[in-house]
């Protein structure tokens, strides 16, 4: 039984693509055959984050239009056996994605893969609607910041009303919240909303809390999903989130202020 998961947020720049890449890679690492699909038509970026930008020949829209087969368009990850990417098209045609086209291809992918991760574009326009339309579960990516939290609430409302599951009166999409760019130091100083604050405002549980981390930029610079940087805090936090997605009970890490050692305090050292 395959599972379609949409990664969405409403607000842009909160880490949807970073999360899609990390979660998809994490599932593949655990032996699940996974495909990550970029829905951001016109602003394709998943290929860069995954480090396969030079191997894109055909894209999502080519497959919808019948210019290429699905297997021609799927890009196999060079690091992991079970991981594939379907790139978004760089066309400027806003109507390139259609409900029928998307449904046909996602259904076909669901037959081949255990997990289909849909990387949604920002906003609440057509692209975002199509990305969530067929989903079984959703990961709403949020920053501990007012505009992002408000947009997430709006997204949660749309997820419960504008999906195929809602139209057909089936069980609603399973909603998960993922908090990114979290800084325990700033929370301790009362400058940033805490995990509990966000959970309380949105009345939804966290599937993961990703600390603000230099590893994220380093990973994207190199085109490596941050979850593969197993030494990093962000990588480990994503790894925990994948385990929770698979139903394991894992305590949250990196929520407390890290105490600096004597040497670190004397010589500075990186955060």
């Amino acid at each position: 039984m395959s599972k379609i998961i949409v990664v969405t947020s409403g607000k842009g720049g909160v880490g949807k693509t970073t999360t899609s890449a990390a979660i998809g890679t994490g599932l593949a690492l655990r032996g699940h055959k996974t495909v990550i699909v970029d829905f951001d038509v016109g602003l394709r970026n998943l290929d860069l984050i995954m480090g396969c930008e030079r191997r894109v020949v055909y894209d999502f829209v080519n497959v919808i239009n019948g210019d290429a087969t699905l297997n021609q368009a799927l890009i196999k990850d060079k690091r992991l056996e079970n991981l594939y990417i379907l790139a978004a098209s760089q066309t400027r045609d806003k109507d390139a994605l259609t409900v029928e086209g998307v449904e046909k291809i996602i259904t076909e992918l669901a037959e081949q893969f255990e997990y289909v991760i849909c990387d949604s574009p920002a906003g609440i326009e057509k692209g975002a609607h199509l990305a969530m339309y067929l989903a079984d579960a959703a990961i709403v990516v949020t920053n501990p910041e007012v505009s992002s939290v408000r947009d997430s609430d709006r997204m949660l409302g749309l997820l419960s009303s504008k999906s195929k599951r809602a139209e057909e009166g089936r069980e609603p999409i399973t909603e998960h919240l993922l908090l990114t760019r979290y800084s325990p130091e700033r929370v301790a100083r009362g400058e940033m909303l805490s995990v509990e604050d966000v959970e309380e405002i949105l009345s939804i549980q966290m599937i993961g809390v990703i600390p603000e981390s230099q590893a994220v930029l380093k990973a994207s610079n190199q085109g490596v999903p941050v979850i593969l940087d197993e030494e990093s805090d962000a990588g480990q936090a994503y790894s925990d989130a994948v385990d929770r997605l698979l139903g394991k009970e894992v305590p949250h890490r990196f929520l407390e202020v890290q105490k600096k050692g004597f040497l670190q305090r004397m010589f500075g050292g990186k955060e």
Partner: peptide
């Protein structure tokens, strides 16, 4: 602390929009 102002504002606007 500014975080508590943020929380209060969010709770009001979110309840209103819901």
């Amino acid at each position: 602390p500014t975080a508590s102002i943020a929380k209060e504002r969010l709770q009001i606007i979110v309840a209103h929009e819901r």
